[in-house]
Write a protein that binds this DNA or RNA. Structure first.
Lengths: 135, 135
DNA sequence: ATAAAAATAGTAATTGTTCCTAATTTATGA
DNA sequence: TCATAAATTAGGAACAATTACTATTTTTAT
């Protein structure tokens, strides 16, 4: 089970590191494929899972039914725009105290939490009507 | 489009109200079916969505890839046990200030947030090894 | 160079969910 | 009470995201 090197995995990780949005497996596939035409979607999924397991990237489940991936593994939170569906990094103070608040009076052990914020992003607030759902 | 009454919808809602765990569509289907043998899975999904839209129940996306439903629509948080997968209600103080913390220095408008806590629940902490995944 | 282990491409299968259609139920009101 | 229209249903097909399978190709250590 010793990890072996693979060009595909390198490309996938490099692609993710070059983006500040949070692409889905399909977006990774579509893009990496441009330079690696016979890349397989299964390979993308397998490597995204593998990289998640080794902690090199992280998997984001923001509730839209599709997994997003983030090469920035430092602890931070995400905002999901309900207009354009973009997933945006938030720079904000630590809120780990919510775990203490949640743990008070709870008989189990709280190991972590997942939080995402939603609303309207800056560009959608400025922008007119047209929903310019990006990808 | 005026809502009409339906026995199936009543049964589905009644079933949900009688449970304090947070069943998935399939669990609802399996159970309501016992008293309503020719219930269709599509009907369950459609009504769960409908009830969610009218605000009578709420949909929970805890990151396990399956939607859970909750007849308790009062604002509260959930804990997901990573051992038995149970989704448990938490009684805890308000943490809405996290939205202000997140909003500071963000150029969009934050309308809400979704948070769930995870760890080991009380009964799994007491219990021996065997993963007794319930449903 | 060789051979074992790991990874790949391509495709099939699975899962959770939504969509479709003809038949049935529900609400209305003559 | 009966007819009618609108909403809902059962059942199954369709769909989207993801995982599993398998023969072939790469990688890495000898």
């Amino acid at each position: 089970m010793a990890l072996k090197h693979s060009r595909q995995r390198d490309m996938i990780k490099a692609f993710l590191m070059g983006r500040k949005d949070h692409p889905t497996a399909d977006v990774v596939y579509m893009n990496v494929r441009k330079e690696f035409p016979n890349l397989s979607l299964g390979t993308v999924y397998r490597n995204l899972t593998l990289l998640t397991e080794t902690g090199e990237i992280s998997r984001l489940r923001v509730g839209d039914g599709v997994d997003h991936f983030d090469a920035d593994t430092s602890p931070h939170y995400h905002f999901v725009c309900t207009e354009c569906d973009r997933v945006i990094d938030l720079e904000m103070d630590n809120i780990d105290t919510i775990q203490d608040i949640a743990g008070a009076g709870f008989d189990g052990r709280i190991a972590g939490h997942v939080t995402y914020f939603y609303g309207t992003c800056g560009s959608c607030m400025k922008a007119p009507q047209p929903g310019q759902k990006s990808e």
